[in-house]
Nucleic acid binder design. Structure first.
Length: 859
RNA sequence: GGGGAUGUGGCGGAAUCGGUAGACGCAUCGGACUUAAAAUCCGAGGGCCCUUUGCGGGCCAUCCGGGUUCAAGUCCCGGCAUCCCUACCA
């Protein structure tokens, strides 16, 4: 008796893979490296090792890449498929503070948990390349790359108003603050000026847009990146300050064509020229407004979107489009917080006729509105932002928007009043954190405030071990308390220098880890040129859509800097990007719309009801979360059903790109499939290791039932191959199921060669059972390097097919038709099959789709 | 407000090009095996209706409404719903 029993099989083969280093992938020059094979680099976005371990949602992408990696190996590629940990950063530190342990300890524990869980899933990573970004042997080179940025002038320190989170005791990047609250933990944040490290990503803005072109990425991600960079073309125009001594207020506009329609101006509350513009009579009001705005920016300044607020400064500027003597040239200047200091020049010309925000402000403060673009006759909106002929615009009148823009820019340049300018929404990257758990900056400060970087040979600057690593209450960085680490004697100058006490943000380590994987143990360089020239770039990068902008933009930026340094051969790091969908769970919702955790509901009842009160509730799809109690641990599923079942189920749920809910009830399906699959090879009632028909070598071409199986197999394999195109492995699993259903009916007809190819085909999906059967078939391990079976097109066509016969597009009959039949033959065949229905009708038209159907159009 | 994605049975989902809607699986129901149950195996199944002893047949069905076409889940136009991203960027 030997029914399918996954646990011993899975344990045995995982141990075998580990002891034989099956998935170890040597680099060029190392023993075992085969230069004749092409390379393939398939990478997962590495995880942040949280304390909770993996739930069933995490590995779905890893399973997808594992299947790709395993198939590529069978197809004869050298496959680079590594895994590591994004271990530095705020959450690790928060977790450590909460648990009262040092982050180095908690990180090590969490990594051990993750590693164990991933190994149990049979993922074919080359574990010899594993590292964490918090390893000193790794972040040494992160610091080294920072030094390259420093040398190129791409890293600089400046005093900037930054988001400060009191609860987290740290500065946060703009993108980590949402509506005035921290993305992590949802704590309130305030703006504070602080000296910060910045990386000049804006210098690469155009290249970051342009090089998206050649990438095989989802269009949505490309669009998000373009929008995030937010390139906009326009003009900078100088408006002389009325009564000033040649000073001018510079503004940026994308609509220079509307210059004649400017009726007032607005500066941001933080604008440097504000003091110059304010008149004594208005000073009190303006000061009050500026103070209010400073506080308001801490709260949701954006939530006040509808009601524009502002105060007249008392000052005026002159619209350069008009003669200074012209009444229309005199524009009052307001201060208002809908203008942002950090974008453009922090000041605008307001053109209410063509800008809704300006319209709103003009209405609120009773300012004049002049249309300079003729709206269509049926236009009933307020500001008109569309195209149309210019009006009230002097030399521009009658021109379309594009032409008018060009003329105005030319005129401004000629008059020395302004010029074409491009601005970006993208800001430089705020790169320092006042926290402990991150890469120290390799920078030394002199008493005079100047700084120099640590020489390459003095790297790494190791993070000192501290027992008091929580941020001090005074807001200073934890490293400033590491007194015996701080001071450095410089043997060259004889000076005593101070180490930089900030650390890099969590994003730093993930900017180049994919390169380190190419050569992870290199002690003399971040990676060797030989390794990077061989592995070149990541061929397939899989991860969640939540990294569509930040991580991918930052990594592309660093990669381009390394490209400019001549250190990497490609402009872009990731050739193909794929976002897996989110795995969701079930939860319940009561009549008021409140979400109910699964453990409070009797889900078997129809409809489901609250256990406590019997109140009916509705089952909904929701996020997997601790609070909804719908977290499922993959270890439990593997324990109960086996790893191969878990893998097949996750792939069978739906296309990898889609979000879909985990459903415990569906898991037995794939398990039953594997049992049927097993019985195809092993008779559970016998003690034989294999069915007798599989022991004999196959003789000659398949005939009869075996031929039918052969055809069926090629059809199955075709679908399996196709599924790799869009990662809809659910269809591959379905194809295997169909084949096994058919093969089960003629078990004795399955030939040995067919069985062998079947095992190979399923190996990437269910590697343990495949390895076991491959071995029972008498092959030495491992099936991981057995050849991927080939589809032969000749087996995909039958001699005849089912011809669908339609009348007026409705199916009325079906008939068997020979494959090679021509149109006339098919039409005749179809007509014969529905003779009675055509009686008394006149055939107006006959449409024949060879191999498919015939449609009669009748009257 | 802007951008993107999605919408097919009780559920997860199939359906390269416009060409048999609902593959495969779950759950359900029926049958076989069993002292019994589980497991397993076999079978049924979108809705409404007509007819018949059974066979059979018709109509309606892919979020809603239009359109193109011999033919629409698929293409076009207009809505609705859900989810994600983004939010005064001048």
């Amino acid at each position: 008796m030997q029914p399918y029993d996954p646990q011993p099989i899975e344990a045995r083969w995982q141990a075998w893979w580990k002891s034989h280093q099956t998935f170890h992938c040597p680099n060029p020059g190392e023993p075992g490296f085969d230069a004749s094979k092409p390379k393939y680099y398939v990478l997962d976005m590495f995880p942040y090792p949280s304390g909770a371990g993996l739930h069933v949602g995490h590995p779905i992408g890893y399973l997808g890449t594992d299947i790709v990696a395993r198939r590529k190996r069978m197809e004869g590629f050298n496959v680079l498929h590594p895994m590591g940990y994004d271990a530095f950063g705020l959450p690790a530190e928060q977790y450590a503070i909460q648990t009262g342990q040092h982050p180095a300890e908690t990180t090590a524990q969490n990594i051990a948990t993750f590693r164990g869980q991933m190994e149990r899933l049979g993922l074919s990573f080359d574990w010899s390349r594993e590292f964490a970004t918090s390893d000193v042997d790794y972040y040494r080179w992160t610091q080294w790359i920072f030094a390259r940025l420093y040398d190129r002038g791409l890293a600089y320190q400046t005093e900037v108003p930054v988001w400060w989170c009191e609860a987290l005791k740290t500065v946060l990047a703009n993108e980590e603050v949402i509506g005035g609250r921290s993305e992590r933990g949802d704590h309130p944040c305030v703006r504070r000026p602080l000296k910060q490290w910045m990386l000049k990503i804006t210098a690469y803005a155009d290249r970051l847009i342009e090089d998206l072109e050649g990438l095989d990425w989802p269009e949505s991600v490309k669009a998000m990146q373009r929008e995030w960079i937010g390139r906009s073309e326009g003009a900078e125009v100088r408006f002389p300050i009325a009564g000033g001594k040649g000073e001018a207020l510079s503004i940026f506009t994308t609509r220079p064509d509307t210059l004649f329609g400017a009726t007032f101006m607005v500066v941001a509350p933080e604008h440097p020229l504000l003091d110059r513009l304010v008149t004594p009579e208005q000073k009190t009001k303006v000061d009050a407004y500026v103070a209010e705005a400073a506080v308001k920016s801490d709260l949701e300044r954006t939530d006040l979107a509808k009601d524009k607020s502002g105060v007249f400064t008392g000052g005026y500027c002159l619209n350069p489009a008009f003669d200074p003597a012209d009444e229309r040239a005199r524009l009052p200047v307001f201060v208002a917080d809908y203008v942002l200091i950090s974008y453009g020049t922090g000041a605008i010309m307001a053109v209410p006729g063509q800008d809704q925000r300006d319209w709103d402000f003009a209405k609120a403060y009773d300012l004049p509105i002049v249309r300079t673009v003729q709206p269509p006759a049926d236009f009933d909106g307020e500001a008109f932002t569309g195209d149309g002929p210019a009006m009230n615009s002097g030399f521009l009148d009658g021109l379309g928007v594009a032409e008018a823009k060009a003329r105005m820019i030319a005129w401004l340049a000629e008059q020395g009043l302004g010029e074409a300018r491009v601005t970006y929404r993208l800001r430089d990257w705020l790169f320092s954190r006042q926290r402990y758990w991150g890469e120290p900056f390799p920078v030394l400060h002199r008493p005079d405030g100047s700084h120099q970087r640590v020489r390459d040979e003095d790297l790494p600057v190791a993070l000192p071990h501290m027992t008091q690593f929580a941020p001090p209450d005074d807001g200073s960085p934890p490293l400033s308390k590491a007194t015996d680490w701080l001071a450095v004697h410089d043997p060259v100058s004889g000076e005593t220098l101070q180490r930089d006490t900030d650390t890099m943000p969590g994003w730093a380590g993930s900017c180049w880890y994919y390169l380190r994987f190419m050569d992870p143990h290199n002690g003399s360089a971040p990676f060797s040129q030989e390794a990077v020239r061989y592995w070149n770039q990541v061929d397939l990068y899989v991860g969640g859509a939540e990294h569509a902008v930040l991580h991918l933009l930052y990594a592309r930026f660093w990669h381009k800097v390394l490209f400019d340094e001549g250190l990497v051969p490609t402009k872009e790091p990731f050739q193909r990007l794929f976002n897996q969908g989110m795995l969701q769970g079930f939860a319940y919702k009561d009549a008021t719309g409140r979400l109910i955790p699964v453990d409070e509901v009797d889900g078997e009842a129809e409809p489901p009801v609250l256990k406590a009160s019997g109140e009916p509730v509705e089952r909904i799809v929701a996020k997997i979360s601790k609070s909804l109690k719908n977290v499922v641990n993959p270890d439990d599923v593997c324990q109960r059903y086996g790893v191969d079942t878990f893998r097949l189920y996750e792939m069978f749920m739906g296309p990898l790109a889609d979000s879909k809910p985990w459903n415990d009830r569906d898991v037995p399906g794939p398990r039953r499939f594997l049992e049927r699959f097993w019985r195809l090879f092993v008779d559970p009632d016998s003690s034989d290791r294999l069915r007798p028909n599989l022991l004999e070598a196959s003789q000659g071409a398949a005939v009869g039932e075996s031929l039918e199986l052969e055809k069926q197999f090629h059809r199955c394999l075709q679908r399996v191959n196709d599924s790799f195109e869009h990662f809809n492995f659910n269809t591959a699993v379905a194809a295997f199921m169909e084949f096994v259903n058919v093969a089960t009916k003629s078990v004795g007809a399955l030939r040995r060669d067919q069985a062998e190819r079947l095992v190979c085909a399923i190996a990437p999906f269910a590697p343990h059972v495949a390895e076991e059967l491959w071995s029972r078939l008498g092959h030495p391990p491992s099936v991981c390097f057995a050849p991927w079976p080939q589809v032969e097109a000749s087996y995909l066509v039958d001699e005849d097919f089912e011809l669908v016969v339609q009348i007026m597009g409705k199916v009325r009959a079906r008939a068997r038709a020979p494959q090679g039949a021509n149109q006339d033959e098919l039409a005749a065949l179809a007509r014969a099959s529905i003779e009675d229905r055509l009686e008394g009708k006149q055939i107006v038209k006959t449409i024949v789709v060879p191999g498919k159907l015939v449609n009669f159009v009748v009257r």
